[in-house]
Design a protein around this nucleic acid. Structure first.
Length: 275
DNA sequence: CGGCAAACCTGCGAGC
DNA sequence: TGCTCGCAGGTTTGCC
């Protein structure tokens, strides 16, 4: 679901609302999502204080006062909201509800159940299999044109598919891969090793696209909502994503839709030199 | 090893 | 109106 801008927006909101608070109770409305919930989830959580909420790639990290960290993922349709207990009305797919010491509820809702929660000791977090193999954070200093060019070299896979490979660069999903390639005027079908020569342009476009989206509070399609329950606004800024047959904002040609690795790709034939 | 399709789920819109 | 089909923001697995 949510790609980096959406996860970032949720992390910022959750940090403001739950950091420093003790968990009074933890209600599991089912035994599993994508994976079974850890047996010790409730035991570890109840009575612990949430020291810090952060993000690595699209993973949410909740550092607890007792040496454990919750690793969360929102999958395609997950949301996390915090609201006053008095305002809570149960909804289908509210899978986990944490009761906080200030009387608020922190609710994990996920219709498609591709999301999950795992538990790891904080000092072993970097070695966790889901975390250890991840590529560069696109908004960090290490995500440079040199890094990207090196990572793309020798790969024949289409550049759009490569940008969505989390071992290469994290946080770029189907929406922002299409948007960044349009910004860079590069064909999504260009082999990655050819696109390596445009690494500088690509890094710039990925930066711009993600920062704009974060500034807009992310994109709301169906399920995504910020931690305050409000929607994001970046969907109004889409230039190609979900705009098939609508005029290109630069050249007025119709935006085209295709499929790569099972995912929809949107692009402008003219601006992105797709022959 | 690289690259693709399928699988995991539910909900919604399009089309018949 | 009501059904079926296809598709949806992600990641892993298994097959070629």
């Amino acid at each position: 679901m949510p790609e980096l801008p959406e996860v970032e927006t949720i992390v910022t909101g959750l940090a403001q609302r739950i950091e420093g608070l003790r968990v009074e109770d933890c209600v599991l409305n089912r035994a599993n999502m994508r994976f079974p919930f850890p047996d010790t989830l409730q035991e570890v959580l109840i009575g612990a204080t949430i020291q810090a909420v952060s993000r690595r790639a699209k993973y949410l990290l909740f550092r607890l006062s007792n040496g454990f960290t919750i690793i969360g993922h929102l999958g395609m349709s997950g949301t996390m909201r915090v609201l006053a207990a008095a305002d809570y009305e149960p909804r289908k797919h509210d899978h986990v509800i944490w009761e906080l010491e200030n009387g608020c509820l922190w609710v994990f809702h996920d219709p498609r159940r591709f999301g999950f929660l795992l538990l790891e000791q904080t000092d072993k977090l970097a070695g966790h299999p889901m975390i250890s193999a991840l590529g560069s954070e696109p908004l960090s200093a290490e995500f440079t044109a040199d890094y990207l060019a090196q990572a793309l070299s020798g790969r024949k896979t289409p550049i759009k598919v490569a940008l969505m490979d989390q071992k290469l660069v994290v946080g770029v999903g189907n929406i922002y891969a299409s948007e960044a390639l349009f910004d860079a005027c590069l064909s999504p079908f260009m082999p990655a090793n050819e696109a390596a020569k445009d690494a500088e342009k690509l890094v710039h476009s990925i930066h711009i696209t993600l920062r704009d989206a974060i500034a807009s509070g992310g994109s709301t399609l169906r399920d995504y909502a910020r931690s305050d329950g409000d929607s994001g606004y970046f969907q109004h800024h889409f230039r190609v994503y979900d705009r098939a047959d609508q005029p290109c904002v630069k050249c007025n040609e119709n935006i085209a839709q295709s499929r790569q690795a099972g995912r929809s790709t949107y692009f402008c034939h003219k601006c992105q030199c797709v022959g």
